[in-house]
Design a protein around this nucleic acid. Structure first.
Lengths: 215, 215, 215, 215
DNA sequence: AATGAATGAGTTTTCATTCAT
DNA sequence: CATGAATGAAAACTCATTCAT
């Protein structure tokens, strides 16, 4: 009995939130590898085999061991990218002043993110694009992004009500802005000469002019 | 365009460019089915099986018989969409006056095209984004699109030189515009409530404001 | 056009009920192989690989090509065995006279069936046993057997009402009879010395005595 | 039986037959879980993963650690069920009088055992039917059961010699009886409405009538 | 003694492509 | 020209088992 009791304390691995330290590390490692493969090969050509190879794992079974399935892994990819993106974007946006300032900050830090994590947003775009019509957790997947876009729509309407932005269809504006940013991000993957910072500035100019009241 | 018109010659086994009439019909039928499947299911989930089913064909062998391979079929999908898009866009753009007018015409007719061929541009986007890093005819594929975008860049520079457009990075502007249009197009597939005409008008407003000289 | 019309008539394969002649042959061949493997190795150790090997097929993909999945194949195994069993049993049972005679005929021809198709009923028992708690088409699977057992229960109650059988619980009697027959069938698989005809006679004696009114 | 009673000796690390007390406890726990999973899911769908989950263990490694392999675990399942069954059946059978009485006692206590250990006999049946053609300890597995059935055959022949039972094939009778009992046991797993005691009585009636001399 | 991460063989399934008819 | 059966590689996933800690 005593032996049994002791066992639980002394042995093996520290845990936080139901997962072992090393398991979390493996999961993270696999997610990283997945992000890289997705960004480079595209979602359609991403397979467990490629991810395993990228992660230096001996078999695809390893991935199935740590993730419930392909969907589960993709979900984690999305979660990881969103987490990193949020951590990067939110303080930068909040540091900006006024609706115009925050719009510019949003666009510029989105693009800047490419210099810090060049594969993250491209991977996110790939995954979200290809998971579009997938029934089961559709809301869960694109949901977080949808929520972000809804928030932005709301902010734009506030800016319109405050007289700082002109009168446009906020939904279309957000879609256009997202699409324009994604366009630059996608282009950045296979065009290493692209001056990303300049792109951010230009994009911000574009949507500043597109949204602002008069001048 | 002229080539298109010339296509149908008459002989007892009507041929054009080495293909029988019925074979061309079959090919067209398969390409149509492919466009629909790609737009609805996404590139990653498009298979010969689904395309055959959509086309009312009993076997996938039929597709391999008419196309040299999957890449060949995709190539044809791209060519078909580009042909239709050109036929729709070019006269509308050319009918417009001035750089501003042509920019607006370009954006609006791109989006309008969705009402006539709702699956065409979505399919094109799917294919082009997923064929990115692909081996053989990569230049041929994205090349055509790249050429189109280069042309637009050139036009924008002309407009800037003419003093009609303000001073911006033409490459970024084209990328942003393309991305914004694609965003709306992609959204249109699974959002039937979208007011497409309004979207076109709004998008055109956005890039008119983003490009024009005086506020 | 004429060419197209002609095509449908002259070409390829005769059809009956939506399946080609050769496809039906392949399906039958696979079902046969499945029956043999199941009877010999048991359901738990039956795999597409073994079935393909038994059927002389080069790959397991072939099986998936002809059947929608493992469940579909098992469904066909059940259907095939039931079809053969019905064809064998029904005329023999109906040729018998009186409730006692038909009961005896039922049992004896069940067991006799082993001499004609030694693997059929063993395979059926394996499949039905192991598909027990399987949600989806459970009713469809065991359903046919359940129906047969219900019919027998009904017959027994009629025989009781007619005063030919004594008063017992018909459900338990049918379960016992089915179990007893299955016991003999199962034993027959790995005990080739078993005198099957004698077993049938003995089994029939047992249930004749168990059911009849006085003696 | 006697061995069972003797098992718990006392020493500071209590051992019996080379095993620590806690190890025996773990083994027993795993065997229990295995019995439940096998009875509920069927042998074919029983995996170490499910057993570990049922036992509240975090990994399947635990099972491999305590058992030499899947076959070893199954061997233990059989042994455990046989031990419990013996302990339940033997005294009840021996308390009965005469061959007829003992036959009835055998059948009724077999079925009664379901009320005390509902999963034990179902699990045994699953394992034994699915281990049929299995290599290593086949004789050891089915051997014990075979021995039991041989004993019963012998008893029946004695009863026949004593003039208490009529003249039938003892082997077939035992097979039939075993099959009939197993039929009821199997049915009991997923049919909670079954009146088990009534089933036992009816089954006993059936085989009493089937075996006894005078009608 | 116990843990849980790792492994690699094995399972079903899907796919594009080929080929005899 | 067209068919559909066949193929085999590759996919995702499961499994029992091993091993360092």
């Amino acid at each position: 009995m005593v032996l049994l009791m002791r066992a639980k304390n002394s042995s093996s691995e520290q845990r936080a939130s139901g997962r072992t330290f090393t398991e979390s590390a493996r999961r993270a490692q696999i997610v990283q590898a997945a992000i890289e493969v997705i960004a480079e090969a595209g979602y359609a050509k991403t397979s467990f085999a490629k991810i395993a190879k990228q992660a230096g794992l001996s078999s695809t079974g390893m991935i199935s061991y740590h993730f419930k399935g392909k969907d589960d892994l993709m979900h984690e990819v999305i979660a990881e990218v969103m987490r990193v993106a949020q951590a990067y974007l939110v303080p930068r946006i909040e540091a900006a002043e006024g609706y115009r300032g925050r719009l510019r900050a949003f666009i510029e830090s989105n693009v800047e993110l490419l210099t810090v994590y060049p594969k993250y947003l491209p991977a996110l775009i790939e995954v979200l694009t290809n998971l579009k019509g997938d029934d089961p957790h559709r809301i869960g997947y694109a949901g977080a992004l949808k929520a972000m876009m809804d928030v932005q729509e709301q902010r734009m309407r506030e800016a319109q009500a405050a007289g700082e932005f002109r009168d446009f269809d906020a939904q279309v504006m957000v879609t256009a802005m997202r699409g324009a940013i994604d366009g630059v991000i996608t282009r950045s993957v296979h065009d290493p000469d692209l001056d990303i910072t300049a792109c951010g500035r230009e994009l911000a100019d574009i949507f500043d002019r597109a949204t602002r009241r008069t001048p």
